[in-house]
Computed example of a mutant assay.
Amino acid sequence: MTHPALRYVSRWYGWIPFAAALVLAFAWGQALGTIGVLLVSVSLVGAVLTAVHHAEVVAHRVGEPFGTLILALAVTVIEAALVVSMILSGGAGAAAIARDTVYAAVMIVCNGVVGLCLLLGGLRHHVLAFRVDGTSPALSVLAALSVLVLVLPGFTTTTPGPTYSASQLAFAGLMSLVLYAAFVFVQTVRHRDYFLPVETGARDEHAAPPGNGETALSLGLLLVCLVAVVGLAKLLAPVIQSGVGAIGAPAAVVGVAIAMLVLLPETLAAARAARANRMQTSLNLALGSALATIGLTIPVVAALSVVLGFPLVLGLPGKEMVLLALTLIVSVLTLGSGRATVLQGTVHLVMFAVFLFLAVVP
């Protein structure tokens, strides 16, 4: 008889992660032609879809909100490694890579992902229900982190420009880590019930949780998928950069495109949960990934900046600060009642379109 692990790996969600990893290994450091770009793109899409499958298997086994937290942490840790590697490699705009990536991730998540989930869920279920006790704490932490990391550096006077001094940067990184750790403690231990799905009758009671062996395999394959997603996205970055240069768009558009690619697994998982009328799960994924992006990426980058001495630009320009403030205000209004419809989804998607348009046409 075939070993259960071999049967698992022989299925599409078992072999695609290894296929994507092989494409990444062979394509790494090579010049991509037309066929290479197509192969990397197909592998990227396959890795994203497979990552969503394995994330749902793990989430079903460990339950909410641990499942969504695992995906958010896994994606963000690898995203932080990608940001650090791009900073250390140098090049034009390297000092602002962390800022541009974090800002883009917050705007993509809070407007693009949340808006898409509200629209898809609202079209199918009309009125979506979620727990204010879970969304309000997440938004309060997100607002504090966003201002601390992306706004205040433009108003401090110890150093010129939108930067922190070494001591200020270390303090901001430590406070970001403290805020994120406190949120995770509340989400998973002290007030876990605030983040559990609202009873809507749409829960999959008929599906038995997977066993420990299947869960362990899915967790390992999820990590393989996420590494492949980030690596393949980095391989496509020069192609995207060439396209951005061809249309005369700002260099920051490359960071936006890469952030969208890296966030694809969470976006698809959140959208599927919204269509299944599990809006709380969608919001756990969306807001949790935005919090993890700031709460984990910035402390790592800040520590390396202090130790290695490379410059780090954090403060946003005026236009981006206005869009960030508008996003936070609308998010509070949208998620502050515990109920939402397609109208709120449309508002967030319009703001996401504004963000993308002004990134290309500043």
Results as ranks from 00 to 15, higher is better:
Met1Cys: 10
Ala5Thr: 12
Ala5Lys: 08
Leu6Arg: 09
Leu6Pro: 10
Arg7Phe: 09
Val9His: 10
Val9Lys: 11
Ser10Ala: 15
Trp15His: 05
Ile16Arg: 07
Ala19Met: 10
Ala19Glu: 09
Leu22Arg: 00
Phe26Trp: 06
Ala31Glu: 10
Leu32Gly: 12
Gly33Lys: 11
Val37Pro: 09
Val48Gln: 04
Val48Met: 02
Val48Gly: 02
Ala51Gln: 01
His54Asn: 05
Ala55His: 11
Val58Lys: 03
Ala59Ile: 02
His60Glu: 07
His60Cys: 03
Gly63Val: 13
Phe66Arg: 13
Gly67Thr: 00
Leu69Ser: 14
Leu71Val: 12
Val77Asp: 11
Ala80Glu: 10
Val84Ser: 05
Gly91Ile: 02
Gly93Ile: 01
Ala94Thr: 10
Ala96Lys: 13
Ala104Trp: 00
Ala104Lys: 00
Ala105Gly: 09
Leu120Glu: 12
Gly121Met: 04
His125Arg: 06
Val127Thr: 09
Ala129Asp: 10
Arg131His: 01
Gly134Pro: 08
Ser140Gln: 12
Ser146Val: 06
Thr157Asn: 13
Thr159Arg: 15
Pro160Lys: 06
Ser167Ile: 14
Leu169Phe: 05
Tyr180His: 09
Val184Met: 07
Val186Glu: 05
Thr188Leu: 07
His191Thr: 06
Arg192His: 02
Tyr194Trp: 13
Phe195Met: 03
Leu196Trp: 07
Pro197Asn: 00
Asp204Trp: 02
Ala207Thr: 14
Ala208Asn: 15
Ala216Trp: 14
Ser218Arg: 08
Ser218Ala: 12
Leu219Tyr: 04
Cys225Pro: 07
Val227Ile: 15
Ala228Glu: 00
Ile240Trp: 13
Gly245Phe: 01
Ile258Asp: 05
Ile258Thr: 05
Ala259Cys: 13
Ala259Ser: 14
Thr267Gly: 05
Ala269Lys: 08
Ala276Ser: 14
Leu283Ser: 03
Ala290Gln: 02
Ala290Thr: 03
Thr293Gly: 08
Thr293Glu: 09
Ile294Val: 05
Pro299Gly: 04
Val301Glu: 14
Val301Met: 06
Val306Glu: 00
Val307His: 03
Val307Cys: 03
Leu312Thr: 06
Pro317Ile: 09
Val322Leu: 10
Leu324Val: 06
Leu335Pro: 03
Ala340Asp: 02
Ala353Cys: 11
Ala353Pro: 08
